[in-house]
């Protein structure tokens, strides 16, 4: 194996090793080489969760594709061989449209300062894609022990993500509807007509 091959948001990368230093993490590579600044970093030791990205890898034995999330600060870029890496920019963006995880998190007011947000989105994205069966609210709520948020008090984030579970409280689903109606109303509201 003389080359390390991986993709980031579908774009192939091929490294011989000489391009990076012995300490270049996947996080450094994303932020400083590829200039994808959506993935953040704070503690650089896998404690805060701001740097989480999603990975698809073919299992070496079962050949099954599996989806998992990693702390990009803890992974050396040369250990990403045959990984398909998705960052928050690859999940959805203003050009291609946003993913429903992004839409719902925004709609539930799950962001305040926003610095942890891509970590939450990516952790949820992996959970969502890897779910063999429908998720339960309990599974969703117990899957975020590695991410911190200092602003929101977690409630709106967990509500947004629990709305993807099949046993979600009807009031949560109802809340989504109400919120999206407000957004639509706001977008279509003809202020001048209302004035007249």
């Amino acid at each position: 194996m003389d080359k390390i091959n991986f993709t980031i948001n579908g774009e192939p990368f091929c490294l011989s090793g000489a391009e990076v230093s012995p300490v270049t993490s996947l996080n450094d590579f994303l932020r400083y080489t590829v200039q994808l600044h959506g993935t953040k970093a704070m503690c650089h030791e896998g404690g805060c969760g701001a740097c989480v990205v999603s990975v698809t890898q073919t299992h070496p034995v079962t050949k099954e594709k599996c989806e998992f999330s990693v702390n990009s600060c803890l992974v050396h870029v040369l250990s990403c061989h045959e990984w398909d890496i998705t960052t928050v920019e690859g999940v959805g963006n203003r050009r291609d449209g946003y993913h429903s995880i992004q839409h719902r998190l925004a709609a539930f007011n799950g962001t305040q300062c926003g610095y942890c947000t891509s970590g939450w989105v990516m952790n949820m994205y992996s959970l969502y894609k890897n779910a063999k069966k429908k998720l339960t609210t309990q599974e969703v709520e117990n899957s975020f022990g590695g991410i911190m948020c200092r602003c929101t008090g977690y409630r709106p984030i967990l509500d947004a993500f629990k709305s993807f579970a099949n046993d979600a409280d009807p009031s949560l689903k109802n809340k989504i509807q109400v919120i999206f109606e407000i957004i639509r109303f706001l977008a279509n509201f003809n202020f001048m007509a209302a004035q007249q």
Binding site: G38, V88, R94, A106, N109, G110, T111, T117, V121
Partner: peptide, 27 residues
């Protein structure tokens, strides 16, 4: 309207997509 309404934070979607820029993100 739109005062007193539970509108979304104007930056929310940008933050959810990593499009909101912070000081450390400056190239």
């Amino acid at each position: 309207w739109p005062l007193n309404q539970p509108v979304n934070k104007v930056e929310a979607l940008l933050q959810c997509a990593g499009e909101a820029v912070y000081t450390e993100d400056l190239p």
